[in-house]
């Protein structure tokens, strides 16, 4: 039996070791093209700083709106029964399975409808604007946010909400004083992961807002632009920045989850 246990452990651990080595290889291979002086020099260029700023601002705004919309939507899906609930639940998942390029196409086409034209006429245009970047990122990340938060709210015991009601809370009061604090961990994780996904968004953003340097070029689209003209030092610098942000975020999620356990 102990021998079988060892075989079992090796069977499970081996793929993990291979996977970790593969990721280390991916990240480590950048060192061949990376130098600190080159990194600092690239950072001093205004269009790179603009791409970083745009990525951070747009991701913060789009993920903020996405989580803001996702909290009530996810709660409704987790708690209420309503007509066509299964259909709505499935439909909301659409952005998760659709490629971001297709999503970007959908957004652009929707701007050719009466509603889109009306919005354009009042100045809300998408190509080469911050609004376009935010809308593209929002569309991609909102489904992830809803899915994560629905799972979070489903884990909150409805009895606790019912007891809160009977102790004097209104429905909103129960949500604020009991449900939200109990869902805090899941909400924080959803915010961080939604934000990280928004920072890394490329396909839909390029389709909707383009990649105008200093205007709508985010970190991922700047990497694409740099690689398309074989500017490796620039591409590597941007990749290193993205890796840094991603690791920080993943570390942050872990810290939040550990601290609130």
């Amino acid at each position: 039996m102990p021998q079988r246990d060892t075989v079992f452990k090796i069977t499970m651990l081996l793929p993990l070791i291979i996977l970790t080595s593969y990721f280390l290889l991916l990240v480590g291979s950048q060192s061949a093209f990376f130098s600190l002086s080159g990194f600092i020099e690239q950072l001093s260029q205004s269009d790179i700083r603009s791409a970083i700023t745009l990525s951070l601002v747009a991701a913060t705004l789009s993920s903020g709106v996405a989580v803001g919309v996702a909290i009530p939507s996810a709660y409704a899906l987790a708690r209420f029964d309503f007509p066509c609930k299964r259909l709505v639940d499935t439909f909301i998942d659409l952005p998760m399975v659709l490629t971001p390029i297709a999503l970007g196409t959908l957004i652009l086409m929707s701007w050719n409808t009466a509603i889109g034209r009306t919005l354009s006429s009042i100045g809300l245009t998408l190509p080469f604007t911050l609004a376009g970047v935010i809308l593209a990122q929002f569309t991609v990340v909102v489904a992830i946010s809803v899915r994560m938060l629905k799972a979070t709210f489903e884990q909150v015991n409805p009895r606790q909400e019912q007891v809160a009601r009977l102790l004097g809370c209104s429905a909103f009061g129960g949500f604020i004083h009991v449900t939200l604090p109990l869902a805090k961990r899941g909400i924080l994780a959803a915010i961080i992961l939604t934000w990280a996904r928004a920072v890394g968004e490329f396909g839909a953003t390029v389709m909707v807002a383009g990649t105008a340097k200093g205007q709508t070029a985010t970190l991922p689209s700047s990497i694409y632009l740099a690689m398309s003209v074989a500017d490796l030092p620039r591409a590597v610098t941007l990749v290193v920045i993205l890796i840094g942000i991603s690791l920080l975020v993943l570390f942050g999620v872990r810290m939040v989850l550990e601290r609130n356990r």
Binding site: R159, V163, L166, V178
Partner: peptide, 10 residues
């Protein structure tokens, strides 16, 4: 007031 089976303490 209500005391459910699982008590539902906060």
């Amino acid at each position: 007031s209500y005391l459910p089976q699982d008590l539902a303490l906060f």
